[in-house]
Design a protein around this nucleic acid. Structure first.
Length: 449
RNA sequence: GGAGAGGUGGCUGAGUGGUUGAAAGCGGCUCCCUGCUAAGGAGUUAUGCGGGUUCUCCCCGCAUCGAGGGUUCGAAUCCCUCCCUCUCCGCCA
């Protein structure tokens, strides 16, 4: 009994409070589970009393049934049982209130950082793991323009009209720009399918349960777009539908691990980011992303996490984009994650590296919330699996990186070799005539699609 | 959107107020038997939580028959709300 929303394992908190506190302390922020402990003690006390009463009630009720069938008088017994029932209801309310309170506290706690996650207070303490592709920096020009200028100059991206259609932080891709976006999506999916990821086309709207399973709710509701007439949210990342595919199920051991990938648009309100990255494709309310998700057993999780990170890197290497891998320190680690590598791509116009993928290991944090389990072959019992995910990659930021890294002194953009087949053999992008000059149809057609 | 039917254990499918956490069958697992990938026999086979414990075994209790609430001494069974599935009609990429 008892319906605590699983966040951190309450039993772990009970058994090893000092360890949990120590792990939380590594993140900073003054988390302490001490108050939870006392609350939990009381809660279990109430639970024990309630269950004892229920047990008694059940026994008496059965007795009533027996006597009635024997044709005996049961008024007395019934009155006693009725009194018990009232008492139970009372206790239940008390317990419920306490549970809600405990939930409220518990949901503030982030995941415990992995032992390997380096200590640190903020992003300046992140650790450089490796750097790749320095030879590709400043490849075609020494005077790089920012991608939004290139995108506008070449009629690839129309920022103003995107805003007109929606609001700020929306843009439209057009012509070869749109084609480039689609080429990247296909290149990424095709590449990852070779490493065994199952391609998924998930719903782009999901319910609150799914959002809670991966940890976006309840803490980050303000960053989500929600629908007005239905209790549905626009996906902020394909992580949400992909991770929840097996929610509330127990997966056969033989069927593990599961690798999923999906292209989806991602919708984020970017609450709290007002004024940051207002230009260009870096921080849009809607952007495309190919996401990689793995459901794995705990023993293999670390290796699977490293492998997934390499899978994401393979895209950057294929595109010959300079990047580096940063391991996030405890102070910069996301709420859900236990360990995380960020891939940062080189943006020459700014002269800095910019996050283009975040590859995280969540331990059993999400599995617990979404009830993702597998059947252990040794014990025959079910156990929480581990979840891992990473962008492979964020498409908009990849477009930005290509425009900037592949621009030449004369203003044209080379197309990375691996994308050329996806671009109909096109090898470069240059200024073209205005869009929309198609052939005029001879006869008007009213046929719908 | 309209009309109707229905949501039970891994699956099929009984069960309309009282030892039903739930018949039966299938599937799965264990053991026995059998002169070879067959057949037969016995047993076993949900999840979560709490407690006990001779603590990777086991025992006890509570909860769970789509979800939530209600009636009742007692609910899978009755009532209400919501969600979902199926069939027919309408609409539609």
């Amino acid at each position: 009994m008892g319906k605590l929303t699983p966040m951190l394992d309450i039993r772990l908190i009970r058994q090893s409070p000092d360890e949990v506190n120590a792990a939380l302390a590594r993140r900073g922020g003054g988390y302490s589970i001490d108050s939870i402990l006392a609350m939990d003690e009381t809660r279990r006390e109430l639970m024990k009393r309630e269950e004892a009463l229920r047990s008694e009630r059940n026994t008496l009720s059965k007795e009533v049934g027996r006597l009635k069938q024997a044709g005996q008088d049961t008024d007395d017994l019934q009155a006693r049982t009725k009194a018990l029932a009232d008492e139970i209801k009372d206790l239940e309310l008390q317990k419920k209130a306490l549970e809600d309170q405990q939930d409220e506290r518990l949901k503030d706690f982030p995941n415990l950082p992995d032992a390997k996650t380096p200590d640190g207070k903020d992003e300046t303490d992140n650790v450089l793991v490796r750097q790749w592709g320095d030879e590709f920096k400043n490849r075609f020009t020494d005077t790089p323009k920012p991608h939004w200028e290139i995108g506008s100059d070449l009629n690839l991206i129309d920022f103003e009209r995107g805003v007109k259609l929606a609001q700020s932080r929306f843009s439209i891709m057009r012509g070869a720009g749109a084609r480039l976006e689609r080429a990247l999506i296909n290149y990424m999916l095709d590449t990852h399918s070779q490493t065994g990821y199952e391609e998924i086309v998930p719903p782009f709207l999901v319910n609150a349960e799914a959002m809670t399973g991966t940890g976006q709710l309840p803490k980050f509701e303000s960053d989500m777009f929600a629908t007005r007439d239905d209790a549905l949210y626009l996906v902020p990342t394909a992580e949400v539908p992909l991770t929840n595919i097996y929610g509330a199920e127990i997966i056969d051991y033989e069927a593990m691990p599961k690798y999923f990938m999906a292209y989806t648009p991602c919708f984020r309100r970017e609450a709290g980011a007002a004024g940051r990255d207002t230009r260009g494709l870096i921080r849009q309310h809607q952007f495309n992303k190919v996401e990689l998700v793995k459901l794995v057993t705990p023993e293999t999780a670390e290796a699977e996490h490293l492998a997934l990170t390499r899978d994401a890197e393979a895209i950057l290497q294929g595109l010959e984009l300079p990047y580096r891998v940063m391991e996030l320190c405890t102070g910069d680690l996301g709420y859900n994650a236990a360990r995380c590598f960020d891939l940062e791509v080189w943006l020459p116009s700014a002269g800095l590296y910019r996050e283009i993928s975040s590859c995280s290991h969540f331990g059993d944090f999400q599995a617990r919330r979404a009830s993702l389990k597998y059947r252990s072959p040794e014990t025959g019992k079910s156990a929480y699996l581990h979840t891992i995910n990473g962008s492979g990659l964020a498409v908009g930021r990849t477009v930005a990186a290509i425009l900037e890294n592949y621009q030449t002194a004369d203003g044209t953009i080379k197309i990375p070799q691996v994308l050329q087949p996806y671009m109909g053999g096109l090898t470069e992008l240059k200024e073209t005539e205005p869009h929309g000059h198609g052939k005029r149809a001879e006869t008007a057609s009213t046929t719908g699609v």
